[in-house]
Amino acid sequence: MKKTKLLLAPLLIVMGLNAKPTETNQVQNIDTTTSNVKTGTTIGHYQKPGAPIDMTYKSTTVKAGEPSDVNISLTTTVKSGSMSVTITLDDELKQEESVSKEMTFQLSPEQKSYPINLQVSAEKNGLYYIRLLTKIDKAQSSKLRAFAVPVYVGANPQPKNKGLNIMKAKSGENLSVSKAVETIEVIND
């Protein structure tokens, strides 16, 4: 037994040398395998001009009345000054814990991200939103960027306005129809 162990020792050393390195530089992935957790990010996506801020979120899908954990992370290339955040919730969303709706983060080169953790609930099934208005104040100018984080309550909730006033034209084209204000008058030659 002892013999076997000793003979295995060099082999284990070689195997150890072949082990994979720790992947310290990999971008962290948010767990997207859990079906009741919705994730999203603006990183790497095209953005219109505005404050240089990206947002990543993780939002737990819950049943009506249950609290949903919403983890938001803001990142910016700006290393100094401040970033202010104003949070607003859809009327139907209730905040479970007391978190200030107005926040200011002092930006520093060391800090990689600025977290905001919320717990919210809704009495009825639906797709609700937490909105963030972010602003970076610099010496010369201020720029804003708005974000919206979805909160899913119940299975497969749809946007509130989906399917309103939709009809099919004779040509088969889908039409979104509205009534215009109309004035009619006879043309007198």
Partner: peptide, 9 residues
């Protein structure tokens, strides 16, 4: 909404 074309009537 199924890429519906906006119209007013």
């Amino acid at each position: 909404n199924e890429d519906a074309q906006y119209i007013v009537e």
